[in-house]
Design a protein around this nucleic acid. Structure first.
Lengths: 216, 216
DNA sequence: AATTGCATGTAACAGGTTACATGATTGC
DNA sequence: GCAATCATGTAACCTGTTACATGCAATT
């Protein structure tokens, strides 16, 4: 449902074609909720079938057409209802922390490699989000500008404040991940120095005698 | 693939039945990678078909049976290979930050409600993970104990250190989310005090004239 | 005439969620 | 005799991913 509401959030500020929407998406909400075009177009069709948006074919050149969508009252209500409803949290499913918990099973080099690329991964995200923060401050993001133009001035402060707030949260998270991974790198060094030979440990449970051993 | 490797990680320390595995799972790796039983049983079958684990039927009482799985050499290698391979990061998809970015569209009360339950949500996770940290320190977690018993003593330090490391990362994250949401609550208060009447803003784009207005 | 950007998808598959379904055994 | 817990799934559905597919329009 989040993709649907992300799309509604964009369309609520004014009509857009699927293509425009998809472009705007990738440079705004897409930083928070990724979705490929191949998911956006069908979702728009479903939303239209559900009566949340209405699309109008527009001619383009000789033969070309494009479909411009605008939210209906039902769509507007659906978005506002979602905003007021309790958020559904998905269960934790974190591959990096999963792997981190078993780093003793691999070589120090593989452990370092993992932690280094974790730093890199989050540094990439961090840059995205910090860039977005700068664009918010400079009021230099097409969607944000559209939004401000479409709303009464007394709401501008709030609109900007909450955008900032959202991206600040993401920036915090990225920084946290980077710090954590750096601590991990230090830990690997420490463990390699302190304890004896660090040999990757192979499961003891292979072969039939293992299951024998553990039978009740 | 992460579920598969989470299961391998547990089975590598010694054979377990599907049921035992599922129980152990929910109090160990399950804190990092959630999976319901209905996913675990079929996954075990698939893993067996792929030759990563082997299951042996054991009789239980008169008619009952249970299937005890142990990892094969191929499974052990698959796990170790995964540990050495680059981790695949999934694209950002964060409903809470998505909603946060549009908090100006709802009432201050709904905004507060969302932020309060965000705090609660992460406080719940935080307790889980802090509890797990305490159990690691007290060496009081059945899976961890099994693991230590199954490994040579010179690896114990590393094993414990990385478990701590993983959970510390999760604890940090939870604390970060809580702080962020609390800042959000303060922000709502601030905005409510500073700016004029805070009225939820309804999309301007409903109705046919709206699309008229925006046509190129 | 060729490239870039506009414009819109489909198909197959993987992974995860929810609800449902069933029965045996052990301890009280 | 009954409850808890051991034990194992299936089916339908939703969401998302990857790869593929197509063609027009505007610009150089």
């Amino acid at each position: 449902m989040s993709l649907r509401n992300a799309l509604l959030a964009l369309l609520r500020v004014g009509p857009l074609s699927g293509y425009e929407l998809q472009k705007q998406f990738s440079v705004s909400v897409g930083h928070v909720w990724h979705a490929p075009d191949s998911q956006i177009y069908p979702e728009l069709r479903k939303m239209e079938a559900a009566g949340l948006i209405r699309g109008e074919e527009q001619v383009r050149g000789e033969r070309g057409t494009r479909r411009v969508y605008h939210v209906t009252e039902a769509g507007d209500r659906a978005f506002l209802d979602w905003m007021e409803s309790p958020l559904e949290y998905s269960r934790v499913r974190d591959p990096a922390h999963l792997r981190a918990a078993y780093l003793e099973t691999t070589t120090p080099e593989a452990a370092r490699e993992f932690l280094r690329s974790h730093v890199e991964q989050w540094q990439g995200e961090l840059e995205q989000w910090e860039g977005e923060l700068r664009r918010i401050d400079a009021v230099d993001n097409p969607m944000l500008v559209r939004r401000l133009v479409a709303t009464p001035p007394e709401q501008h402060e709030r609109t900007i404040a909450f955008k900032r707030f959202a991206y600040e949260g993401l920036v915090d998270r990225a920084r946290g991940e980077i710090e954590w991974a750096r601590r991990g790198l230090a830990l690997v060094d420490e463990l390699e120095a302190s304890s004896g030979a660090w040999t990757a440990w192979t499961a003891i449970s292979s072969g039939p005698e293992a299951s024998e051993r553990a039978a009740p």
